[in-house]
Design a protein around this nucleic acid. Structure first.
Lengths: 149, 149
DNA sequence: CACTAATAGTTCAATGTCGAAACATTGGAG
DNA sequence: CTCCAATGTTTCGACATTGAACTATTAGTG
């Protein structure tokens, strides 16, 4: 069809890389997150809950940073988590601009129900790579991610 | 804070990997796709348009497969592209279930305007890795992606 | 101390996103 | 040929997502 460009080898390589990165991440998440329907959480809700569970209470902007989403989006996601009483907002007393988000007992219980199976699936998914390959993939993705200041 | 689990080394590795994969992809796309505002396209719209430009007309289910989205979503995205006359739907005559989506002249022009800069940024982003590292990253992501049938 | 710049969070409109149900069309089994 | 399973697309409701405009609060500068 209509190929209007000469695409160089280097460009072809970059295009191939970004596509492979997408497909691999998509494949991994399909296998590890599809069971979220069982506990009626969306991927975003799970991400937020997991961060709060493992790292403790946190203000929304920091949370947005952790899950790579906008602050406006966090408002929505946390609203929906709060409706189900899985998290709690608590206005900071020192600096009243901040709102610390706390996971509730109910929220913790949900994570504890889901997490073991999740971990099992995650480890299983990466087991198609050898230990050396996993280490190298970690190194390369880290270098690539940090390389863009 | 509340650590209710013993997380094994293997699990910690898997968690680290998925996070690094997310962060690297996010960093790459932030740098390469932020200019889409210049041509008023969303990321999804660009993905669809790019596939059509380079691979030619295609039915929606195949398109959904290429861009890793649901068929219901494709209906929405293509609706919005069609409103701006960047693509055209044409019902297939052989099998009337299919709707082939064609990119228009206007759509092609938009891609041709954006693509050179996009490629340049993409190559630049990956230049933080050596040629050998890029090749290895391609191999590993491919193996990881295909490993999950 | 007053004013201003910076930061945290919310709101809003537009679009994206999924999954399930519904509809249209086709192909295959009896 | 007829029915039915399979496939492509749309619709719908709920939620996600962004960026920009807005409010509240704080910190810094003169």
């Amino acid at each position: 069809m209509s190929i209007g460009f000469k695409i160089s080898e280097k460009e072809k390589e970059a295009l191939g890389l970004i596509i492979k990165m997408h497909r691999s991440l998509h494949a991994v998440e399909s296998k590890t997150l599809n069971r979220l329907v069982d506990i009626k959480l969306t991927v975003s809700q799970f991400s937020v809950l997991e961060v709060l569970y493992h790292l403790g209470p946190m203000c929304q902007s920091l949370l947005a940073n952790k899950v790579l989403k906008s602050s406006g989006n966090l408002t929505t996601v946390i609203d929906n988590l709060e409706k189900r009483e899985l998290v709690e907002r608590r206005r900071s007393t020192e600096d009243r601009r901040y709102i610390d988000v706390h996971i509730t007992e109910k929220g913790s219980a949900l994570i504890e129900e889901f997490f073991p199976g999740h971990m099992e699936r995650l480890v299983d998914v990466f087991s198609v790579l050898t230990a050396a390959e996993r280490k190298e993939l970690a190194r390369l993705t880290k270098k690539l991610g940090l390389g863009q200041s």
